[in-house]
């Protein structure tokens, strides 16, 4: 679960990025974070990732009050969050495989598990055949998918994405959103920052709308125009229902990969 309590963020420059933002995202929920550019979407995500600290208010992630988290526990919290960046943050001095393996190496997984999990994650984003390539040789959409594979490879309970479809065409954007949906259906809490309103409208998920650092919308979005607060998690029961079906597909496909890798 992710919870903001009256969070404000003022940068040293005096600019107010967030003003009195409160919301809560339940475990297993999927939501969009939207608003015009400069509205505070990135700041909000950066607060969750501990790249910034709030000037006022409390940010809670996974029942941890982030301001009270000892510094040495920050890496452990980051391991629970898969993050997809707009600029990918991939390393071009190593292969696609090694990029995706990084979170597992950092967390001390056994080499045997690393191979299996990396291939399962790459298969999920349909890039298994490119594991030996350098990410520099891939297209923008493919690079984004490598970033997604890296974000989910250690099966984190949280998945955050900052403009993941920023530079992609509508078809690719839809594919990537579909991927996020699939992760959500296996229990991952997903928060996607995007200004792609058309995409949000089609997705039937909760939207947090920021305007000039204030939260002006917080609720289920079906029509794409009307927002009502106080409906947190209303459509959870619906999504839970089709979760099981989709989950079965997901699990069986990754199980196949697991057994292939084991062979």
């Amino acid at each position: 679960m992710i919870r903001f309590e009256n969070v404000s963020k003022r940068y040293d420059s005096g600019q107010d990025a967030l003003a009195d933002v409160s919301f809560s995202l339940n475990a297993g929920e999927m939501a969009f974070l939207t608003g015009h550019s400069g509205a505070g979407k990135s700041t909000l995500l950066r607060l969750i990732m501990l790249m910034e600290h709030p000037s006022k208010g409390e940010v809670w992630v996974d029942n941890q009050h982030l301001a009270k988290l000892p510094k040495r526990h920050i890496p452990l919290l980051r391991r629970k969050m898969g993050v997809v960046y707009q600029n990918h943050q991939l390393l071009f001095d190593r292969s696609v495989y090694d990029n995706v393996a990084l979170p597992l190496i950092v967390a001390g997984f056994h080499p045997r598990d690393i191979g299996r999990r990396v291939r399962a994650a790459l298969d999920k984003v349909n890039l298994l055949h490119k594991e030996r390539q350098n990410p520099q040789t891939l297209s923008g959409g493919e690079q984004q998918r490598v970033g997604i594979a890296r974000a989910v490879v250690n099966k984190p309970p949280f998945l955050l994405a900052d403009e993941p479809t920023g530079n992609l065409d509508p078809t690719l954007s839809a594919e990537i959103m579909q991927l996020f949906k699939e992760f959500n259906q296996v229990g991952v809490t997903v928060l996607v920052a995007t200004h792609d309103l058309a995409l949000i409208a089609r997705m039937h998920h909760r939207s947090l709308i920021l305007r000039d650092g204030s939260l002006v919308g917080n609720g289920s979005n079906t029509s794409g125009s009307s927002f009502s607060s106080g409906e947190d998690g209303l459509d959870l029961s619906d999504s839970d229902k089709d979760k099981v079906d989709d989950d079965e597909n997901h699990q069986s496909s990754s199980n196949n990969i697991n057994s292939e890798a084991a062979n």
Binding site: R79, K155, P156, P157, K243
Partner: peptide, 30 residues
Amino acid sequence: KSNQKNGTRTRSRPGASSPPNTLSSRLRAW
């Protein structure tokens, strides 16, 4: 039956996401 099975797997997911955490396996990883 299989739906049920996958359902439990879904719920136990966060646990499966943690790296090996017995002392000996952590020492070995280190």
